[in-house]
Write a protein that binds this DNA or RNA. Structure first.
Length: 559
RNA sequence: GACCCCAUCGUCUAGUCAGGUCAGGACGUCAGGUUUUCAUCCUGAAAACAGGGGUUCGAAUCCCCUUGGGGUCGCCA
């Protein structure tokens, strides 16, 4: 491959909301393809919608991308990524560039000014719909004479610029995954390339930027397939070279609906409607005006924090759809990356689990799957488990510590570093996510006085059933524990195994489970010796005593 | 509705481009087993070429139709 034909790919998100998994997969494919051919991967922020763009959101994208390990060679600067000399990489900074090319099209007659108002167009669309006709812009402004146009301009009438679709010629585009895609003449309408506010539309900006940034391969979601003929025509009119397109199929929810970044808002809105709420719940901390606006506009999105608060107030579980959601849920970045790659691409054969380096060596366009894929959380979870089990123990401890630092700082505050290490290690073999240990190990950081033994089947089974019962054994073992010399997992194991030999017919479970319930308030914990070691002698005995003291209440409830 | 895209176990997929192995793997499911709880772990099983027509000695594979699914139809990207 010559240096001129060096691969250059780009990921071009609009900075609205967080990076969702579909976008992440597109970015990953672009990245992998560039790496595979020693090319460049660029990042460009498509912020030509003044109403929706926000600086914060694009920061979120960068963070999400870099968490996944997708680094970009050119684009916005962020840590060690970004830079490059085909920028600026924010479209809002490139307005003068677009205007130049816009003028070129205007001069050649390939584009023209159109003065219809949004309301007029809206009415025309509705009418077409009512008449069961496909709507297409009627080119009314194309036949305006120059004097009229000049007078409109003098009056300061707002206008857009439309691209004039060449007549009578079918558009054929080659797609690296789909093959030839053909659209007959007359199917396309004269689409808008510059909005009334002077900003280019997506179609125009994307074409100009891809050319100027030397993009050779455009890998993107199939939702863009219908736009591609428009882009091809624009490129032809501008004298640009067409890139290689590769349209990747979409990712769906298990129920078959499109996995959309708006799913959270959808879930929230439908709950709000189901309850007939017209004002935000008291504890959601949302002001009424923005709540009403959000409720009325199905395109509106709540930011993550607000959505989370509202979900809590409503008792709704939000679907995981953004990269950040999976991070919060305790998935490992390399696992998400692996799974995402597998959703729509495969290396062939039976290989499924691989890392970033493998992708960078082996990824190619010809193995991208054409059909849409459903996102299977169970499989992701299984991959995450495999990865955690394969990890070096010390690395896992580091990962869990990092996770807690961000999402569960109380675990670090309430435990000594030694306790935390032991806590992490005792969970490594049994957790599927980084969140599992903190969810199931909440009791570790609770005050001893906060542990309760609610009346439930597993608790009664462990404490009340049998003769001797769990309570009987707890009372019997207390003294032995109190007298134990060195309080650590090994000595606890020796001690309790010996004790079980003489008191439980060598069945360690007979004492393990009552102890587990006594110190945790529930039937689940890490291995019992680790659990007691982490808790320490003082907490263990305090919880034991309180549990024993609750005996009559629980036995009373059981009858 | 119009246009475009897609179609192998429940799910992700290998096999398709160069027709010829009991259609392979993984996740999930089910049945056993190991285990101090949960989670692991081990063994085994059920499970698919959407339907119909061609072409061919032979079709998951090539062609056509039907059906089903999806995308797009914005001064969003």
């Amino acid at each position: 491959m010559t240096s001129e034909s060096r691969v250059r790919t780009r990921f071009a998100p609009s900075p609205t909301g967080h990076l969702h998994v579909g976008g992440a997969r597109s970015a990953l494919f672009c990245w992998a393809f560039a790496r595979r051919y020693q090319g460049k991967f660029l990042l460009r922020i498509e912020d030509t919608d003044q109403k929706r763009s926000s600086v914060d959101a694009s920061q979120g994208f960068l963070e999400d991308l870099s968490w996944l390990g997708i680094d970009w060679d050119e684009g916005p600067k962020w840590k060690s990524c970004g830079g490059g000399d085909t920028g600026p990489y924010e479209q809002s900074q490139r307005l003068d560039i677009y205007d130049r090319y816009m003028q070129q099209l205007l001069n050649s007659g390939a584009a023209y000014r159109a003065f219809e108002t949004p309301d007029e167009l809206d009415a025309a669309r509705r009418q077409a719909r009512a008449e069961k006709r496909a709507y297409k812009y009627n080119r009314a402004s194309l036949s305006l004479d120059e004097a009229t146009i000049k007078s409109y301009l003098d009056q300061g009438r707002p206008y857009v610029i439309r691209f004039r679709i060449p007549d009578d010629q079918p558009v054929v585009v080659q797609d690296a995954v789909l093959g030839e895609v053909r659209v007959e003449a007359g199917e396309l309408e004269d689409f808008v390339i510059r909005k009334a506010d002077g900003f280019p539309t997506y179609h125009f900006a994307v074409v100009v930027d891809d050319e100027l940034m030397g993009v050779t391969h455009v890998i993107r979601g199939q939702e863009h397939l219908a736009n591609t003929p428009k882009h091809a025509l624009l490129q032809d009119a501008l004298g640009f070279t067409r890139p290689v397109w590769a349209h990747v199929s979409l990712i769906f929810n298990p129920d078959g609906s499109k996995m959309s970044k708006r799913d959270k808002d959808k879930a929230l809105r439908s709950e709000v409607r189901a309850r007939g709420l017209t004002a935000p719940p008291d504890d959601s901390d949302i002001d009424t005006a923005s709540f009403e606006h959000w409720l009325a506009d199905k395109h509106a999105q709540l930011d993550t924090d607000t959505a989370t608060r509202l979900a809590q107030a409503l008792g709704v579980t939000l679907p995981e759809i953004n990269v950040d959601d999976f991070r919060r849920a305790g998935y490992l970045p390399e696992v998400l990356l692996n799974y995402l790659a597998l959703l729509g691409w495969s290396p062939g054969g039976d290989l499924e689990q691989f890392d970033r380096a493998f992708l960078a060596d082996h990824f190619d366009l010809d193995r991208i799957v054409k059909s849409p894929a459903k996102f299977d959380r169970a499989k992701l979870l299984a991959f995450n488990l495999d990865a955690i089990q394969d990890m070096e123990a010390v690395h896992f401890v580091d990962c869990l510590r990092e996770f807690c630092k961000v999402y569960e700082p109380s675990f670090l505050d309430m435990m000594t570093p030694e306790q935390f290490d032991c806590f992490a290690l005792s969970n490594k073999e049994r957790c599927k996510t980084l969140r599992d240990p903190v969810d199931s190990g909440r009791f570790f950081i609770l005050d001893d006085l906060a542990i309760e033994w609610p009346d439930s089947k597993p608790i009664r089974k462990a404490l009340c059933k049998g003769s001797p019962s769990g309570f009987d054994r707890l009372e019997a073992v207390r003294e032995t524990l109190e007298a134990l010399q060195n309080w650590n997992a090994d000595s606890l194991e020796t001690c309790l195994t010996e004790w079980a030999a003489s008191h439980c017919e060598e069945q360690i479970g007979k004492i393990a489970q009552p102890l587990r319930v006594a110190v945790s308030g529930g039937p689940v914990s890490p291995p019992i010796f680790d659990t007691l070691a982490i808790l320490g002698r003082e907490s263990t005995l305090a919880r034991l005593d309180r549990c024993i003291a609750s005996r009559s209440a629980l036995e009373g409830a059981a009858t």
